[in-house]
Write a protein that binds this DNA or RNA. Structure first.
Lengths: 333, 333
DNA sequence: CTGAAAGCGCTAACAA
DNA sequence: TTGTTAGCGCTTTCAG
């Protein structure tokens, strides 16, 4: 039924090995026989079976990608970065959503290793010890994308979350604000809890501003909770907001405006992410550029190096961030 | 090095066949031996090799997904629908972006078939004859998600694009508008050209409104081109807009407001998509609900039926749409 | 309920 | 430059 390498060999009067060589672009084939084989392949409509190839060669040219949720634009951007580089290196992607659920993450890892992927790009807010243990146990290369593992046991690519957050808050302080709210994503996520929040506190401390617990509101990263955060903070009446992502920032703006505030005249906002949404907001958002696409691309590139057993110069990659100033802050140029 | 089924068999004093049976949940195993085998599996840390299994069984429990661009929220939503159902049925997803480039689509199909996927979910604005030919040639089940193949040769799931667009325009007409612009996505896409545009023309015709070529503006679906469309149409000064997706609608609104128009008082807008953005816009968008997640989910469900060789009652599935009325139109309840 | 044995389609030494 | 021959790790008859 399906035509195999054996059928081609027979028709072309050569051995399987020779067919295999031409299919794999091995140079040790006389041009004439190559041509002959190619012709038969064409005639028979032969298509190499990658599964058989994978079993024999122990390489599948596919990599696993485990991310929280592809329908979230941040992770989708990351995924696109991964896929573009993967394609460039001729890898395919097995993509799975973990919803940050640790059991699912563990099980997904297991499944992908079972499928003999050549490598894995993994993203999650928390890399638990169990996860880390599984990752170290496996001989399959893994790189963490936008995810922190402080033990530095696993390769990773990130930005300087602390520095970025510090700069955002610093800007607000420099603009004269004393009462700065922090609308955070889930504090279960290490980046939020141990980097952004700490940077926020430290920036305040460095400016002799007292930290007030109530000024930090934990949200689920959604537009709606951004709006709610403003209501939660209403009594405190902060004059500036540092917000964890663009979607929530838009919620913050809308609710602030509903409450009669003008932005940036009455309230200034620094967002974090700098996605397309930052330009689609009114006023447009000043936002810390968090380069998701690049993180994905660099992670995948790093992974290819591991898969090729190349020399790795930097196991923990830190990509640059920058602050994109727009209309949600008063800018003094 | 890696532990195989053979190692387990030896340690447990049974045959490979028995180990295979317990791994695959075959009931024909005495509880005692099952337990013994399970124990050895645990001890040795045995993990079945899915590639070998795939070669032997000719099933990979993975399906291919070819979509235009995962970083576009519409397709990301679709992908999530597909993945959720796939997970439910224990399939994994190989995800690839085609950027609607036909060569890439063809080559991706080829790659996935080579990888022996059990099925494919495919999405594209245009299903060319070449593509159709390849799809029909393959014995691997394929379903088209949100993509039109008028020959109805391939299974598909869609909504009634024509009816949805007709209703959108009709609503604008019913609200008294005579000069209704259509800000369309690429007219290379069949849905836009042969369904939405035709519905727009017919709705006008049915209301004795003359069709004006200049009132339809072709865009690339982006926010920026939504804004530009308004400028392009400035001289004609339409009093209503039917816009192909939410992102462009926001661009339209912002540019309209920049030009001093009030919405919906001066200009009414009906969007198409009804994503999260529709609620994040100000005013919030009246939008035709285009259920991407559901299309993905139903496509995948349909695919499972083909993969299981189940009876298919409906090869061309049409999902319902509805119009979600919000603030960008005047609503007369 | 269990085992033996024949592949699945290909790669990769090793020979020639 | 080409062919021979083992596997790769598992499923699946077929016997018993």
């Amino acid at each position: 039924m399906t035509v195999t390498i054996y059928d081609v060999a027979r028709e072309a009067n050569v051995s399987m090995a020779t067919v295999s060589r031409v299919v794999n672009g091995n140079q040790n084939v006389k041009p004439a026989t190559r041509k002959k084989v190619l012709k038969v392949i064409e005639e028979l409509g032969y298509r190499p079976n990658a599964v058989a190839r994978g079993l024999a060669s122990k390489k599948t040219t596919t990599v696993g990608v485990i991310i929280p949720d592809i329908s979230n634009s941040m992770y989708a951007e990351l995924a696109r970065g991964i896929e573009d580089i993967a394609t460039m290196y001729r890898y395919n992607i097995i993509l799975s959503n973990s919803d940050q659920n640790q059991n699912k993450e563990l099980q997904l890892l297991e499944t992908m290793l079972g499928k003999q992927v050549d490598g894995i790009v993994f993203m999650s807010g928390v890399i638990t010890p169990e996860l880390l243990h599984e990752m170290e146990r496996s001989s399959t290369p893994i790189v963490l994308a936008g995810s922190i593992d402080e033990s530095a046991a696993i390769a990773s690519v990130n930005i300087d979350y602390y520095g970025a957050a510090y700069e955002a808050v610093k800007k607000l302080i420099d603009n004269g604000h004393k009462k700065i709210a922090f609308v955070s994503g889930p504090l279960t996520s290490k980046v939020n809890k141990d980097y952004k929040l700490k940077a926020y506190r430290q920036a305040l401390l460095d400016a002799d501003i007292e930290f007030e617990e109530q000024l930090v509101v934990e949200c689920n990263n959604s537009y709606e909770e951004g709006m709610e955060a403003v209501e939660t903070l209403k009594a405190l009446d902060p004059t500036a907001y540092f917000v964890s992502n663009d979607e929530m920032s838009i919620g913050v703006i809308h609710q602030l405006e509903a409450n009669g505030k003008r932005i940036p005249e009455d309230v200034e906002i620094v967002s974090y992410e700098n996605s397309k949404l930052a330009r689609m907001a009114r006023p447009m958002l000043t936002s810390i550029a968090f380069p998701l696409y690049d993180i994905g691309a660099v992670s995948m590139r790093l992974l290819t190096k591991y898969m090729n057993k190349e020399e790795i110069e930097e196991k923990q990659v830190i990509l640059p961030y920058r602050i994109e100033e727009r209309q949600s802050t008063k800018n003094n140029d």
